[in-house]
Design a binder for these strands. Sequence first.
DNA 1: TCCTTATTGAAAATCTTTTTCAATAAGGAT
DNA 2: ATCCTTATTGAAAAAGATTTTCAATAAGGA
Lengths: 143, 143
Amino acid sequence: MDIQQKLNQQGLRLTQPRQVIMEVLESTGMPLLPQTIQQRAHESGSKISLVTVYRTLELLIELKLVRRIHGQDGCHGYILSSPGHHHHIICQKCGRALEFNGADGIVKLLDQIERDTKFKIESHLLQLQGVCPDCQKEKDHEK
Amino acid sequence: MDIQQKLNQQGLRLTQPRQVIMEVLESTGMPLLPQTIQQRAHESGSKISLVTVYRTLELLIELKLVRRIHGQDGCHGYILSSPGHHHHIICQKCGRALEFNGADGIVKLLDQIERDTKFKIESHLLQLQGVCPDCQKEKDHEK
DNA sequence: TCCTTATTGAAAATCTTTTTCAATAAGGAT
DNA sequence: ATCCTTATTGAAAAAGATTTTCAATAAGGA
Ligand SMILES: [Mn+2]
Ligand SMILES: [Mn+2]
Ligand SMILES: [Zn+2]
Ligand SMILES: [Zn+2]
């Protein structure tokens, strides 16, 4: 089921701005600020209100098509996300993000923590920062 | 080395507002909004500017005495943090937070992810939500 | 007690996100 | 292809969060 149907199914509409915002996110494998999304849309010929960007991101998050990324500073980026449980690792050089699931390790880790803390864990936020393979090569060149 | 020395060492001063904010954070084992910190300070007899709260939190984070907690919605809480590497698990019933380190499991997990993704991991953000032991008991009573 | 200057608070600026509401445009029905 | 209903948009304003400015204040070493 594509996004068109997913929306209509709930009485929602696949509008021009929604398509454009999806395209912007699809064409960029990295977390973008709402403001940046608006700019990119504008550069590709579509003037979209920033208000609409916020509203659309909220919707796309509900539809599990987009996730919020927490920046070091405090600002929030938004990135396209494939379905299913996974997390993001973001390159601190080029900004690109990669999904991973590391299901095994995470389940074990959470089990261990539940035993240690006696908490019942309901949800987790895991986000990694690092250097992607490409940027590692470049760093080598500099030396 | 206590906070007094830690500050003086860098030419910084242990002021009234800084002490009060530390006390507020110490007396509450849960993430607080800057605004809430100001209120608590006021309730305990110290009028502190919200500006000072922000500035002090920034400082305390640099000194590694405080950490930022990412709320589900987007607002940020601040919580006292003991030295060393660890993470927080927050009770979604009562708000209380507990530190854990789960060092073993995390190291293994990160190693696995480095192998899988070929990224060089530099830092990670891990934050758990759940129900604390106390609140689990209360839930049982309701049944 | 005095001096230097780091720090504070009030106000304003800046930035982010949400709300309002009239105009617009999806998309199902005719 | 045209009409209708109403979900959606955009402009403006409101609300909320965080930062900057700058004169007055207070740490803390001399
Ligand atoms: Mn997970
Ligand atoms: Mn955040
Ligand atoms: Zn990279
Ligand atoms: Zn609890």
